[in-house]
Nucleic acid binder design. Structure first.
Length: 1143
RNA sequence: GGGCUUAUAGCUCAGGUGGUUAGAGCGUACCCCUGAUAAGGGUAAGGUCAAUGGUUCGAGUCCAUUUAAGCCCA
């Protein structure tokens, strides 16, 4: 007996996945899929490293499905696709995780726990969920090399990162600057955004706020705006931090905001003043009830303040005005005291003018830089540039400043009263809330000088340090930067060559980000990360950047010789030895890196800058560092760079996508990736973000277990485009399971059932294409079209299109039409050429579908392929993932054939609709259908599918009616597409007239090809192409129309047709009885019928038909009714008693 | 506040370059088939295409504004 195609009781996708996984494990299929492509061109894929200190979620299944499917597709196309896994191991989340599990805080580091032990804890913490990740990787069918992952905390990895940093350093792209960051003077440390977002950090505080009056200087700009206005003029600006006013160097206005010049009195000095503020804020300071107060009646001290608008200006106009320094403690070094544009200025509160102190606000710093305004900077005793406030939160004491600077830039007579004062009382342990604050004293000073317009207490929400409970300051802190701005144009150019999916992310989100690029702030004040490899002398005049372990070892040797270090921590490291063991003889991390003191060329000690580098630099370095480039794998790297393809979530646009791009652009003058897919979010079924807190997060393991990886992956890919957000609903997976996998599985089961009966193992020679019947050639044509389309879709990184086309084909073409119409060919008749053709055709379809679907549904595709191939042995590979892509055979594509099959489907559907309307069962044969045809070509097309139509709808003949037949009642409609451009505005009237044309008008148009209309006084000639003529009705027939197709059905049931109908009913009942008795489909039977003359009369003509359909070998007419006979109703009061037994 | 995305049937989604009747699947209702049967098929109901304004003979589609949701950034 020949081999049998496996058959299953039902479809169990999770079980299939599990079994296929075992097969892959056993046969090392993943390894083979790479090994068998040795010597072939490579398709380079980079894995974006996840962090294993978090639990994987369902969105990881999404992202990884995308990565996996293209890699599998490219493998089948013959490329060698290596995929190295990776782990992102540094960064704040790891530190927080450790602190949580050890029950410590950052404060304790270095006290309760040594940095050494802390870092050890980080090493374990970061791999906490590695097993879970590996498990998910395997269960979802993501092929990636987990045995040799790159790990960002490895010394080798770090060495490559250092090498990259040194390249940047040598190109002069690393510099030290400052950024305005949240800073806690009480704790003496900067805070991360994350720390600021701790619950309870933001709280309401009551502070003294001031609206200050900035006096505009009468210069050229003044006259340009105000002409010869001769009085004094003040701009009003509000601040919640009056202590920053001495550091003011500019005022920002909104360019599109309207401002008013108002004449009024100062409420403290009662002097007459002219003040400027935003129109939208006018009423906040000058209430309506005072509109009528007269200037003449005003006396100093009156509550009701008279006011009068004397001018209106746009912010644009005001830019460029100069004003006198409000509090002239310190002279700025550079351009200052100008009105500048600020994109973030609003009129929600304050005066619509923002006081700018670049040293104490990130936005301030940014807009000031853009306008060329200098910050207010002091020079301290050590010669360093400092803001006005020292690290303890005090105004600098004069003694702590550089003496020369004090002489030239500080007005000591004014400043000395305030020098040394804490900007917030909270920072001074000896002060309480009751004591006068610096804010208040400054405000009082301004009031006296006619420079304060309004001073009041104001409650606002302000961030506090989670450790000290005291308010934070926004304060300039030292940072290392990469001068990415210098490479901006390069990066934009290179970005133009990258194929982004979707395009808008590359052009919009990423492109705009590049356009507005700022320098990359590389510094992080953390413990667990890659140390910045820069050592500098105390005066910062000498500096070295280390680019390798070898270099570090040599520099330490020098330092040991100079006496700055006792011994060399790298003494056991052997340069050039690339073994793991050699690289484990030391540790680049803190605290070890900080213990290293190097020696400068002039013999001074150099200490490491204490910062760590941004973890994003870690991951952006992976193309090089994963290979330990350039220390190892140089040649391999050259051939496997840049990546052909990467994929991650769209949230990585400014993360990994950017850091890869930036490093590649700056160091290698290249893109890092040629194609990138950025996928959207996975939301819950209601479109809400998934979160553990809300409990709407989907557990990926549960989902995979319940529905299997194939259905999960298929659902995710086909339900929405990867870059759209996915509303994840497990119901959808169930649907995919039923609809797509169920249908495909049923089609296979159908094939297996009959192929096993007939012993079809695909050993016969292929039936020549032109020897195959129309229906076979049709499905093959459709299949080849499908291959082309799917291949193109995968090629263009459009997996959703690919998947949808595949499932449409399986459902609409293969199952619902090909198999349904071909069923008889599989079970009827002998093992003929026609039957073999049917088997070969269906086999070919199934095996091709296994491959087309395999990238998305790797397990199911594998099983389908193996079930087929294990019997036929057609492919030598024992995995679909090792096969070469089955190229489309375009010679088998016949568009005409596809079109006429569509006609057959359309006509069948219309006729079935008519049967439904007239309540005539399909089992009742009918005599005739008629189809009006407009052309010879159309008639020929229909003629070739005539038999399919007639058998599908159970009608005996199909006839054609010529278009000009008088029987046809026609309808006419304007063709807007051709008429529109010709007649424009007359369209509407023309359309009305065309619809109103009579039958004879239509005939005239059809015959002469032309027709004249008289529309709105104009004679208009229309042509045949300007209208659409359809057949609407054929009197005396039941008619259906769909588009431009029309069909008429003859519903007369003649005596003969009736007899045939009843015979078919009988066949149907007999089949049911066979089935009830569990006969095999091949069993021959004896049919006994109780003799009844009426029945006999009806079915006599069709006895042969009845017997052959039911495999009746022996038909007996029983004279006497017995209990064994079953009564069946054939409809229309025809009751028959019969019995079916095995022959 | 800026950039980007999305908005079409109860749900999930299609709808090149504008053309008058806006499609599919699921779900719902009714029905058919019974040699694919723990399958298969048909028919129907269901839409102010987020809103407003504009361009046009004609807008789901093009333009502007707005609303809602989401992401990233500030």
């Amino acid at each position: 007996m020949s081999k049998q195609y496996p058959s299953y009781s039902h479809l169990n996708l999770p079980l299939i996945a599990q079994q296929v996984q075992e097969q892959w494990d056993q046969e090392q299929t993943f390894k083979q899929s790479i090994a068998t492509r040795d010597g072939q061109p490579s398709f380079v894929f980079y894995e974006g490293p996840p962090s294993a200190n978090g639990v994987p979620g369902i969105h990881h299944v999404m992202a990884r499905t995308i990565k996996d499917l293209f890699c599998r597709f490219k493998t089948m196309q013959g490329f060698k696709v290596e995929r190295k896994a990776g782990w992102d191991t540094h960064g704040l989340p790891v530190e927080i995780g450790v602190e949580k599990s050890l029950g410590i805080t950052k404060e304790d580091i270095g006290h309760k726990i040594s940095i050494e032990d802390y870092n050890k804890a980080c090493r374990t913490e970061v791999m906490k969920y590695k097993d879970l990740w590996d498990d998910l990787t395997q269960k979802m069918g993501y092929w990636v090399d987990l045995d040799h992952p790159y790990i960002t905390f490895d010394n080798k990895y770090i060495e490559s990162v250092w090498w990259l940093l040194k390249q940047l350093y040598n190109k002069n792209l690393l510099y030290k600057g400052y950024t305005i960051q949240p800073y806690s003077p009480a704790a003496g440390t900067g805070l991360s955004t994350h720390e600021l977002n701790q619950p309870g950090c933001y709280r309401d505080v009551k502070d003294t706020t001031a609206v200050a009056q900035f006096k505009v200087i009468k210069n050229e700009a003044f006259s340009r705006v105000f002409g010869n206005f001769s009085e004094d003029l003040h701009i009003l600006a509000w601040t919640t931090t009056p202590w920053t006013l001495p550091s003011n160097t500019a005022l920002a206005v909104g360019p599109k905001i309207q401002y008013l010049l108002v004449k009024t009195f100062n409420p403290y000095t009662f002097e007459k003043v002219n003040v400027m503020l935003a129109k939208d804020r006018f009423r906040a300071y000058f209430p309506e009830k005072n509109d009528e107060v007269s200037f003449d009646d005003y006396k100093g001290g009156d509550k009701a303040m008279p006011h009068q608008i004397i001018g209106e200006f746009s912010g644009d106009q005001l830019c460029g005005l100069s004003y006198e320094q409000l509090i002239p403690f310190v002279k700025p070094m550079g351009k200052a005291f100008e009105v500048i544009p600020g994109d973030y200025v609003t009129t929600e509160d304050g005066t619509g003018v923002v006081h700018i102190a670049p040293t104490f606000g990130a936005d301030d710093d940014r807009v000031a830089k853009a306008a060329g305004i200098a910050p207010l900077i002091l020079i301290d005793a050590e010669g360093q540039r400092r803001p006005m406030v020292d690290l303890q939160g005090r105004f600098y004491r004069i003694a702590d400043l550089d003496a020369d600077f004090v002489k030239t830039n500080v007005n000591t007579s004014l400043y000395s009263e305030y020098a040394g004062r804490f900007v917030k009382n909270d920072y001074n342990p000896s002060l309480t809330e009751a004591d006068a604050s610096l804010d208040v004293d400054l405000a009082v000073m301004l009031k006296k000088q006619n420079l304060a317009f309004k001073v009041e207490k104001h409650t606002h929400n302000y961030p506090h340090c989670w450790r000290t409970d005291k308010p934070i300051l926004y304060y300039p802190l030292d940072s290392w930067f990469i001068k990415t701005t210098e490479y901006r144009d390069k990066m934009i150019d290179l970005n133009g060559t990258i194929n982004w999916k979707p395009k808008s992310t590359g052009e919009g989100r990423f492109g705009n980000w590049l356009e507005n690029l700022v320098d990359w702030n590389l510094s992080r004040s953390r413990f667990w990360g890659i140390p910045l490899p820069i050592w500098s002398s105390e005066d910062h005049k000498e500096r070295i950047c280390i680019g390798s372990a070898e270099e570090l070892k040599i520099e330490i040797e020098k330092s040991v010789a100079a006496g700055w270090m006792k011994n060399n921590p790298l003494q056991n490291f052997v340069p050039g030895d690339m073994s793991e063991a050699n690289y484990n003889t030391f540790d680049f991390h803190k605290p070890y890196a900080d213990l290293i003191v190097l020696v400068s060329p002039t013999g001074k000690p150099m200490h490491r800058d204490p910062d760590l580098i941004d973890v994003w630099f870690d991951s952006g370095s992976m193309p090089y560092a994963q290979l330990h480039y350039p220390f190892e794998n140089k040649e391999y790297f050259d051939q496997n760079y840049p990546a052909d393809f990467i994929a991650e979530g769209v949230d990585q646009t400014r993360g990994w996508f950017f850091t890869l791009h930036a490093i590649a652009s700056m160091v290698f003058d290249s893109v890092a990736y040629k194609n990138v897919v950025s996928n959207g979010l996975v939301l819950d079924k209601n479109g809400n973000k998934m979160s553990k807190r809300l409990g709407n997060a989907v557990d990926p393991f549960e989902t995979l277990k319940k529905y299997g990886p194939d259905a999960t992956r298929w659902y995710m890919i086909t339900n929405a485009q990867p870059w759209d957000n996915l509303k994840f609903d497990v119901e959808g997976i169930a649907e995919v399971q039923r609809k797509f996998f169920g249908t495909l599985y049923n089609t296979y089961s159908f094939f297996a059932l009959y192929a096993n009966i007939d012993g079809f193992t695909h050993q016969e020679a292929e039936v020549a294409f032109d020897q195959r019947p129309e229906i076979d050639r049709w499905i093959l044509s459709e299949l080849n079209t499908l291959i082309l389309n799917v291949e193109e879709a995968y090629q263009q990184y459009e997996p959703t299109r690919a998947g949808r086309m595949i499932q449409y084909f399986v459902d609409a073409h293969l199952s619902n039409w090909y198999v349904r119409l071909s069923r008889r060919r599989f079970w009827k008749g002998t093992y003929s050429t026609d039957k073999i053709s049917a088997y070969q055709t269906l086999y070919h379809n199934l095996v091709t579908l296994a491959q087309l679907a395999a990238p998305i549904a790797p397990f199911f595709g594998e099983r389908l392929f193996n079930d087929l191939n294990s019997v036929s042995g057609k492919c030598k590979e024992n995995s679909i993932h090792l096969t070469q892509w089955f190229k489309a055979n375009s010679a088998e594509i016949d568009k005409q054939l596809e079109e006429r099959m569509q006609l057959a489907q359309d006509f069948s559907s219309m006729i079935l609709g008519l049967r439904k309307q007239t309540k005539i069962k399909v089992r009742q044969p009918l005599q005739k259908i008629m189809i009006p045809v407009s052309s010879e070509a159309m008639q020929q097309q229909i003629d070739r599918v005539k038999d399919l139509i007639t058998s599908e709808v159970n009608v005996k003949e199909l006839a054609y009616i010529a278009e000009d037949n008088d029987m046809l009642v026609k309808a006419i409609k304007a063709n807007f597409k051709t008429l529109g451009p010709k007649f424009g505005k007359l369209m509407k009237s023309i359309a009305v007239q065309i619809t109103a044309m009579s039958s004879s008008d239509i005939r005239q148009l059809e015959q002469s090809g032309k027709f004249n209309l008289f529309v709105e006084g104009e004679n208009i000639e229309i042509e045949l192409s300007d209208v659409e003529i359809t057949t609407q009705d054929i009197p005396g027939w039941v008619v259906a129309t769909q588009g431009n197709l029309t069909v008429a059905l003859d519903i007369t049931i003649t005596d003969e047709l009736f007899k045939e109908g009843v015979s078919r009913e009988l066949v149907n009942r007999v089949q049911n009885l066979r089935k009830e008795q569990n006969f095999e489909v091949t069993d021959k039977i004896r049919l006994q019928i109780l003799k009844d003359d009426d029945i006999l009369g009806i079915i006599a003509d069709n006895l042969v038909y009845i017997c052959s359909e039911t495999l009746t070998e022996d038909l007996q007419w029983i004279e006497q009714a017995t209990d064994e006979l079953v009564e069946v109703d054939l409809g229309l009061q025809n009751i028959v008693k019969l019995k079916v037994t095995k022959y």
